[in-house]
């Protein structure tokens, strides 16, 4: 498939801080981080609504791309401080501190065995996840791909972040997930009408600062901002999202 092969947005889900709380006490999530749980809730919601996705698309043809800026910062901090305080390296903290841990968790829980990747690029991590999912779908590495952006706050570091941020952006936490398909995937999910066609996502490098909207949300907020703006904009347009150090651009086309 070529650079411009069609990719369609089928559905999206946003999980704001607090929605993970009911899951924390469940045995299944005993060893899971908050990041894992928030992304789990997002993917679970998508799959529940996406009519028979798992029956219509094989586990080898379902991909996932996870984008996060900070990764499991809180768990990394806990691993390091536990190490210093008690000279004990806790395996579960190390395992969950890895950037790729969320992807591994989702892959296990939802039986996703197709192309999968974790990416990171500061406040553009969510956009990079979507751009990578477009690459996957256009390369025909999968028929459907879930692009996820997530980050969690570490309250004890908020003063540090505030001191480092000249624009004083309010930081939050959460997860956002988009379900994207290529033409083959859309044919398989014939009962679902796509929301829009995603033509391109521009990320990386020096992008001119925009006057577009910026939603105070969380560091990998591209997916959240994009999804919320979808609710108030026509679905064939360009959505430009202002960021603390520039902007990103989603190019959408008619179906």
């Amino acid at each position: 498939m070529s650079l411009r092969s069609d990719v369609f947005l089928i559905d999206y889900e946003l999980v704001e801080s607090g929605r993970e709380q009911p899951y924390l006490s469940k045995p299944k999530f005993r060893r899971a981080s908050r990041g894992m749980i928030m992304t789990y809730v997002a993917v679970e919601s998508l799959l529940e609504r996406s009519w028979q996705l798992k029956e219509l698309i094989s586990e080898q043809r379902l991909g996932v791309v996870v984008g996060t800026s900070q990764g499991e910062l809180e768990i990394t901090k806990n691993f390091l401080t536990t190490l210093v305080k008690s000279e004990t390296a806790r395996p579960i903290l190390f395992q969950n501190s890895l950037h790729n841990a969320v992807l591994g968790f989702l892959s296990i829980e939802f039986g996703i065995k197709g192309a999968s990747m974790t990416v990171s690029n500061g406040s553009y991590s969510g956009e990079d996840a979507v751009a990578t999912a477009l690459d996957f779908l256009r390369a025909d590495w999968c028929d459907a791909c879930i692009a996820i952006g997530w980050d969690t706050k570490v309250n004890s570091f908020e003063k540090v972040w505030a001191a480092l941020d000249p624009e004083n952006v309010k930081r939050g936490e959460g997860a956002g997930a988009l379900l994207l398909v290529n033409q083959s995937g859309l044919n398989r999910l014939s009962a679902r009408s796509p929301i829009t066609r995603v033509v391109e996502v521009e990320t990386g490098g020096k992008i001119a600062k925009s006057t577009g909207q910026y939603i105070d949300y969380y560091d990998s907020n591209g997916i959240a901002s994009f999804s919320r703006l979808l609710e108030v904009t026509p679905h064939a347009c360009e959505i430009q999202i202002g960021k603390p150090n520039g902007s990103s651009r989603f190019v959408l086309g008619p179906i």
């Binding site: 990764g71 890895l98 790729n100 992807l103 974790t118 990079d128 990386g204």
Partner: peptide, 8 residues
């Protein structure tokens, strides 16, 4: 175009 991949 840039990309940073952290898939272990």
């Amino acid at each position: 175009q840039t990309r940073l991949i952290t898939t272990a």
